[in-house]
Computed example of a mutant assay.
Amino acid sequence: MTPDNSRSSTPPLGGFYGKQFDLTGRTAVVTGGGRNIGFACAHALAEAGAKVVITGRSDSDTADRGRDELARLGYEVSVVKFDVTDVNEVVSAAEHVADQFGGADILVCNSGAGLGRFPAEDLEDEAWAQTLDLNLSGVFRCCRLFGRQMLAKKKGAIINVGSISGEIVNRPQFQTDYNVAKAGVHHLTRCLAAEWAERGVRVNAVAPTYIDKPGRWGKDDDAIFSTWINSTPMHRQGEPHEIGSIVLFLASDASSLMTGAIVMADGGYTLW
C-alpha cells in the first residue's frame, strides 16, 4: 500500500480534530530526509503544511533527490547538508535554520544505520564507537542544538526514530552495538522529555520494526527473513509511510499530552 500523493488546496480534515494536525507556519527539520523513513516523514509533514528542511551529508545527493521528488509532488522543501557525527557541521546547520527560518519548531531525528553485524567478541572498538556516534550521539547533538531553538520559543516537538532493537535483542543476527545505541535513543528521549516538559518542548520516539525498503539487509536470506516475519504477529514488514503517519501525529497538536513516549510500530513483534 502506498499513500495518495495527490495534493489538495484545502485541508484534508476540517473541524477541531482535523485542525490538530495542521502544521502551517511551522518549520520541520528531518535528518536523513531524502529517502525511506526520512522521506516519508518529510512528505507527511509537508502535506500537513510545515516548511520542511531535509538534511543529508555533503558527500551525498540523497537529500537533493528527496527534495526534487517532493517538489514534483508540489511541495517546497529546503536542503541543508551536514553530518550528524560532526558537531561543527551540526552547529552550522542549526545556525542556518535559525537565520533562514527563525529556528526549528519540529525536529525528526531519523539519521542512523546499522554499520555491521558481528558477534560481540569480534566487535572492534572503532566499529562500536562509530555505531554509537551515528545512532546515539548524533541524535543527542541534533536534539541539543535544535532543541535550544524550541526552548527559546517555549514550544516545539522532537521525534526520535528509535527501533524495536532498542527494546529487544534481535535474532538471528548479531548487532549488539546497534541495539545498545537504539536503547540509548529511547532513554535519551525520556530524559529530554522530563527535562523540557515544563518549558514547552515535547520529546517522543517511534520504534519501527523491519521496514520494507530498497537494499533491505536480510530480505534475500530465507533463514533470516523468515525468522523476522514468523516473529511478527502481522507476518509482514512495515512500510515507510506507516512511520511517517506516526511522526506526523507526534509532531502535531493531536499528541499534545504526550511526551517521553516510545511508540512501538512493530506489527506486534515485541509482544512475543
Rank of each mutant, 00 (worst) to 15 (best):
A129H: 12
I158F: 02
V139E: 02
R148L: 15
F140I: 15
L151Q: 11
K153T: 13
A193L: 11
E124S: 14
G166R: 00
F140N: 01
F174V: 11
K155M: 12
A194F: 11
M150P: 13
G147R: 06
A157G: 14
V161W: 04
E195M: 06
V180E: 02
G147S: 13
G162D: 04
A183P: 08
A205W: 02
S163R: 11
A181F: 10
R199M: 11
Q173G: 00
T189C: 11
H186A: 06
D133K: 00
R144A: 05
F146S: 07
T176D: 03
L145H: 08
A129N: 11
V169M: 09
A152M: 14
E124Y: 10
L192I: 03
K182P: 07
C191G: 13
N204W: 09
S165Y: 12
Y178W: 10
A129E: 14
A157D: 08
T189G: 06
V203W: 11
N160A: 05
D177W: 03
N170S: 13
R199I: 03
K153M: 13
V201Y: 10
K155G: 13
Q149T: 15
G200I: 12
P172D: 08
K155Q: 14
A205E: 01
N179Q: 14
I158C: 06
G162S: 15
A193M: 11
I159W: 04
N179T: 15
F146L: 13
L134A: 02
A129M: 06
F174M: 07
F146A: 04
G162C: 14
C143A: 08
W196G: 07
G147E: 09
H187R: 11
W196F: 12
E167T: 06
T189F: 06
A129L: 09
G147A: 12
D133C: 02
L134Q: 03
T189L: 10
D177Y: 03
K154I: 10
K155V: 14
L132K: 01
W128C: 03
R144Q: 15
A181D: 07
L136M: 09
N135C: 00
N179F: 01
I158Y: 06
F140D: 00
S163G: 14
P172M: 06
V180P: 03
A207V: 07
T176R: 05
V169D: 08
I168H: 07
S165C: 11
L188E: 04
D125Y: 04
T176C: 13
N179L: 04
P172L: 04
E126W: 12
F140K: 05
T176Y: 09
C191H: 12
W128I: 12
L192N: 00
F146D: 00
C143L: 01
K182Y: 07
T176W: 06
A193P: 05
T176K: 03
E195P: 12
D125T: 13
R144L: 15
G166M: 01
D125W: 14
V139W: 00
C191A: 15
N160G: 06
S165N: 12
P172V: 08
R141M: 00
C143K: 01
W128G: 07
F174L: 10
D177M: 09
S165R: 05
R199P: 09
G200F: 07
R144E: 10
H186S: 10
Q175R: 11
P172T: 05
L136Q: 04
F174G: 01
K155H: 15
F146W: 15
C142M: 00
V139K: 01
L134N: 02
